[in-house]
Design a protein around this nucleic acid. Structure first.
Lengths: 337, 337
DNA sequence: CTGTTAGCGCGTTCAA
DNA sequence: TTGAACGCGCTAACAG
C-alpha cells in the first residue's frame, strides 16, 4: 500500500500486470474466465496502486449510470423528509445510488430539475410532481424515462404509489361524528394537488355517510403550510356558527392549527377537537396527544424504489397505481376518553 | 416539438444545423463566440430534436462531475436529517448536484461508501465520520479528495465544521445549578465520537466552575439512542442518591429520558429537571416544553458546502476547523419559572 | 469566426 | 484463454 499515484487507469494496471486492458476489465467485472496467474497479477496491481475503477467511464461505455434521481418538492416538509429517509434506505439495498434534488414545488424549476437528472442520464426518476400536467411529467413521458410518481397521483400512465387519502380522511370524520360533533371544519392543503382533492373528497364522503351536509363555510384552504392554516383557524372560529371540530390536511397545518388555538385561548379537545392527516414522531410527548392518520412512509418508499427498479428492467411493463393503507392513530385531541 | 428520437447526440445536432460538433459545443456552453446564423441553426436543431446534453460524456472529457457526495451516518436521526435538508438547500444554490449515501455509522461500510463515491468521481465529499481514525478518512486523505468533515471532528488536516459542544453543554449545567440543582446526571452519546467527549467535557467543566465534583455514578452512556437512554434513566433513578436533574447528549436520548420518567411516574420538572442537547421542531407543543441547546444546522450545512466548494477550487488552501455557536433555548423542563 | 482531430477510461465485438 | 481495436458523446488544442 502506497500513496496513490496521480491518476491510475485500467491501462496502468494492464501494463503493471502484463496483460491487456481487456483482461483487467474482465477480472474486475468477473465477466469472463481469466486464468489464475494473470488474474492474481491484476489483483496485485490493483492493490499496489490503489486503483479505483472510474464508473463515469464505465457509464459512458455502457450507457447506464446505476443512479436513481429523486425529485422532491420541499424536502424540509416532514412528510417528504420522512419519505426521503425511507427511499434512501431502500435504494441502498439495490445497486443504485441516489441523486437528490429539491424542486421547490415550482413547475418551471421542476422541469429544469428533471432535465438535469436526464442530462446526468439517471436510469430512473422518482418524483412527487408539482401538479397534474406539469411540464416535467411531459418531458419524462416523451423520453420514456423510467419514472415512478410518489405521493401525488397524476396519471395512470405512470407507476404511482402513495397513501390512500379518501377513506383515510373519511375515517377521521367518522370518528369525530361518533364522538358527537356535527360542525366539523376541514383545513385543506395546496389546491390542485391530488392529495388535497382526495382528502377533501374523503371529508365530504365522511360527512355524507352520516347524513351531514358539507358547509362550504367550514371548508377552507390552508395551502398546506403552517401560516395559512393558522389564519384559517382564526377565520373559522370567528364564524357565527363556529366548528366544534377541526380536520387538518397535513402535519404542518396541524401545527398551525394548534398554535392558532393557543392564541385564541382555546383548549384542545375541551373547546375544539382536532384530528389531522400525517403523524408525528414522539406524538406521545405532545399535549394534547394528537389523533391522526399516519402515512405508511416506509412502505411507500420501499414500493416506489421497487417499482422503479422493475420498470428500469422492463420498460414495457404495464404501469401500476398503488394506494397504500394508512393507520389511524387514536389519541386524545379528538376528545374521546 | 416532436416525439424524441432514440438517442440524439451532439453529432446529430451538428449535422442538422450544418456546423461542426465544436460549434455545437461552443454555443451550448457559451464558451466561445459563434456568429448569429449558425448559432440560431444549432438552437433550432436542439429545440426540434429535444436534445439533452449528455453530462456523463462531458464528465469523462473534463474529468469533473459537478457532483458532491454526502456520506451521513443514520440519516433517520433527527440531527442528521436536519443537516441533510440544509446541505441540499445550499448545494442547490451552487452548480453541483448531491449524491447521497448512508454509512450506517459502520466503519467498514463507510469505507465502501467513500470508495463508491470516488468511483463515481464526485468532485468532493461531505462526511460525518464514524470515528476518529476511520479507514474511510484515510482513503480520502491519501487520494487528496476534497473533503469537509461535518459534525464529528476528527483531524485538523481536514476542513471541519460543527456545533461548539463544550461550552454549549456547560451552559446547560450552569443553568441547572443556578436553579438549585447539585446532583446533576449526564447521559452521554455513543462513546468515541468527538461530539460525545466534548459534551462530556462541557458537563464536567460546568460542574467544576461551580465547585461541584463530577460523580462518576451520575455519568452514564446512553449510546446516543433512545433505548439506551431510557435504560440509563431507570438505573440513575434507582441509585441511593438519585440525581435531581438530567442532561441528555442528543435529542433521541432526550426522548428516551422523557419516556423513562413517564414510566417511573415522575413529573418533569417537578420531580426531576431535564435539559438536553439538540432542539426539536414544534418544541412549544411538547409538555413540558423542553429546555435545550439548539444546533445551528442551517449555518453548519451552508458553511460545510461553502468550505467544500472552496476546497475543490483550491486544494492547497489551509484547512479550517469551525465550531459554530449553539443557541440556548430556555423553556420549562429545567424547572425555573 | 469555425472545423479537424485526438483523447477521456472503459466495455465489447471479433479474431486468434 | 487472451488481445487489438473501435466506439460511447463530448471537450479542447491546434489549425486555418
Amino acid at each position: 500500500m502506497q500513496m496513490a499515484v496521480r491518476k491510475v487507469t485500467m491501462a496502468d494496471i494492464a501494463k503493471l500486470a502484463e496483460v491487456s486492458v481487456t483482461t483487467v476489465s474482465h477480472v474486475l467485472n468477473e465477466t469472463r474466465f481469466v486464468a489464475d496467474e494473470p488474474r492474481r497479477r491484476v489483483l496485485a496491481a490493483v492493490a499496489e496502486t490503489g486503483y479505483t475503477p472510474n464508473s463515469v467511464a464505465r457509464s459512458i461505455a455502457t450507457s447506464t449510470t446505476e443512479t436513481i434521481g429523486l425529485a422532491l418538492p420541499a424536502m424540509s416538509k416532514p412528510a417528504f423528509t420522512d419519505l426521503l429517509v425511507h427511499i434512501e434506505a431502500e435504494v441502498r439495498s439495490t445497486r443504485y445510488s441516489l441523486l437528490l434534488i429539491d424542486t421547490e414545488d415550482d413547475p418551471a424549476r421542476e422541469l429544469r430539475v428533471v432535465q438535469e437528472l436526464h442530462a446526468r442520464r439517471v436510469d430512473g426518476v422518482l418524483i412527487a410532481p408539482s401538479k397534474r400536467r406539469a411540464p416535467a411529467m411531459k418531458f419524462l413521458a416523451e423520453r420514456g424515462i423510467p419514472t415512478v410518481v410518489i405521493d401525488r397521483f397524476v396519471s395512470k400512465k405512470f407507476d404511482q404509489v402513495g397513501v390512500e387519502n379518501t377513506e383515510s380522511t373519511a375515517t377521521l370524520v367518522d370518528h369525530l361524528v361518533e364522538v358527537g360533533h356535527r360542525r366539523i371544519a376541514m383545513i385543506s392543503g395546496f389546491p390542485g394537488l391530488s392529495t388535497t382533492s382526495e382528502r377533501v373528497s374523503g371529508f365530504e364522503k365522511g360527512l355524507e355517510r352520516h347524513g351531514l351536509a358539507a358547509d362550504p363555510q367550514l371548508m377552507i384552504s390552508g395551502h398546506g403550510d403552517e401560516q395559512h392554516a393558522n389564519d384559517a383557524v382564526h377565520r373559522l372560529l370567528a364564524l357565527p356558527g363556529p366548528p366544534t371540530a377541526l380536520i387538518t390536511g397535513n402535519n404542518l397545518m396541524t401545527i398551525g392549527a394548534m398554535r392558532a388555538l393557543t392564541e385564541l385561548d382555546l383548549e384542545v379537545p375541551r373547546d375544539v377537537a382536532l384530528a389531522g392527516f400525517d403523524d408525528f414522531p414522539w406524538a406521545d410527548l405532545f399535549r394534547p396527544r394528537l389523533t391522526t392518520v399516519a402515512q405508511p412512509s416506509s412502505e411507500i418508499g420501499q414500493t416506489a424504489v421497487q417499482l422503479l427498479v422493475q420498470r428500469i428492467a422492463d420498460p414495457e411493463r404495464p404501469p401500476r397505481t398503488l394506494r397504500l393503507a394508512s393507520r389511524f392513530m387514536h389519541r386524545e385531541s379528538c376528545g374521546c376518553r
